[in-house]
């Protein structure tokens, strides 16, 4: 095994190509526009990416287990709504830090409960996660619209801006939150029993059960944790936009799936790592910000994201053919 192979084995086969591409995109935009390599742009990217990043982490583990969680956006919305409700109970703009912390706890409880409910239906009823999370998505969206009548909720204490817009030692707080979450996810997936079980279940749930893994509890936990990280995303969204609206971030739903696939997560489950997914997120953010700077709008970058995913799939297919020869088909 060469040093290169060892590095590949350690980081995952997707990491180095994605890293190279990230560098390429970075260099290309830096040359294309002087606005790209500026503190202002880098900082705005660092503030924008974490919400998508947290939601992608919420999507990733269900995919690894062979499922999908289509309810993440509305789990985040409902959690944000819960926090907003608690803050308003404590006087809206006058609410204190204690109220905020209490609200965060309540928000996380909402995210975890909705996740656990899905996990329970997936694990104990054996229903397909796509259908379960789709139904949960429709339910939560309906609940949110019912509660807010489709309107915005705003008027929160000013100190929330520290979380949404502040820096600690020059690093944006949202980025810190995301970095921490990504680290926790990495450790969870590579070093804990739960993470180990996630991969095994993703490949073959029956054999996992026969090997003594607690498959049902693992599934419950997967969706519960996914709900918790959605709640964190929801809290972050509230602090960044200083308002809550059900449906906010709806467009991110399929982008999170796209980011997972870009990062080499196997659509059938069982394989995928955090680091390449984070790299995929960075690339998506750079594409979006860079295109914005050279005058294209957000919609063009949506299209470019899709084309990028197709290109990556085509390259992987080509790489597979080269590696294993043409083979038979």
């Amino acid at each position: 095994m060469s040093a290169f192979d060892r590095l590949n084995a350690r980081l995952g086969r997707e990491t180095l190509p994605l890293l190279a591409f990230a560098v390429f995109v970075f260099a290309a935009f830096s040359l294309a526009t002087p606005l790209f390599l500026t503190g202002r742009n880098l900082s705005s990217m660092a503030f924008q990416m974490p919400v998508l990043g947290l939601l992608t982490l919420a999507m990733m583990v269900p995919i690894l287990s062979g499922g999908l969680n289509l309810a993440i956006i509305f789990q985040a919305n409902l959690s944000g709504l819960t926090l907003a409700w608690v803050l308003i109970q404590f006087g809206g703009p006058e609410a204190g830090v204690g109220a905020f912390l209490l609200g965060c706890l309540a928000a996380i409880a909402v995210g975890a409960t909705s996740g656990a409910l899905m996990g329970a239906v997936v694990a104990y009823v054996g229903a397909h996660p796509i259908l379960v999370s789709l139904a949960m998505m429709i339910f939560l969206r309906g609940l949110g619209e019912f509660l807010t009548r489709g309107g915005d909720i705003s008027g929160f204490p000013e100190f929330l801006g520290v979380i949404g817009h502040g820096n600690v030692m020059g690093i944006p707080v949202p980025l810190l939150v995301f970095g921490l979450a990504a680290l926790v996810w990495h450790i969870m997936l590579t070093r804990t029993r739960h993470g180990f079980s996630v991969y095994m279940i993703g490949s073959n749930i029956e054999a996992s059960e026969y090997s003594g893994l607690h498959t049902k509890r693992t599934l419950m936990l997967i969706y519960t944790i996914s709900g918790i990280i959605c709640a964190v995303a929801g809290i972050l969204m509230l602090t960044r936009f200083n308002s809550v609206r059900v449906g906010h971030g709806e467009a991110l739903l399929l982008v999170t799936v796209l980011a997972c696939f870009l990062g080499g997560v196997d659509p059938f489950g069982g394989f995928g790592r955090v680091l390449p997914v984070v790299l995929a997120l960075v690339i998506l953010q750079m594409l979006s910000s860079g295109l914005n700077l050279i005058g294209a709008n957000q919609h063009l970058s949506t299209a470019v994201w899709g084309l990028f995913l197709i290109a990556v799939m085509a390259l992987r297919w080509l790489g597979g053919r080269l590696r294993y020869g043409t083979g038979r088909d």
């Binding site: 029993r193 180990f196 991969y199 095994m200 490949s203 073959n204 029956e206 054999a207 996992s208 026969y210 090997s211 003594g212 893994l213 069982g270 394989f271």
Partner: peptide, 20 residues
């Protein structure tokens, strides 16, 4: 389909029952 998790590694298939 029940004895081993075929796509996963030899190491993981060996360790699966004694993670604790």
């Amino acid at each position: 389909s029940l004895g081993l998790i075929q796509p996963q590694s030899i190491a993981d298939n060996t360790a699966i029952s004694v993670l604790d």
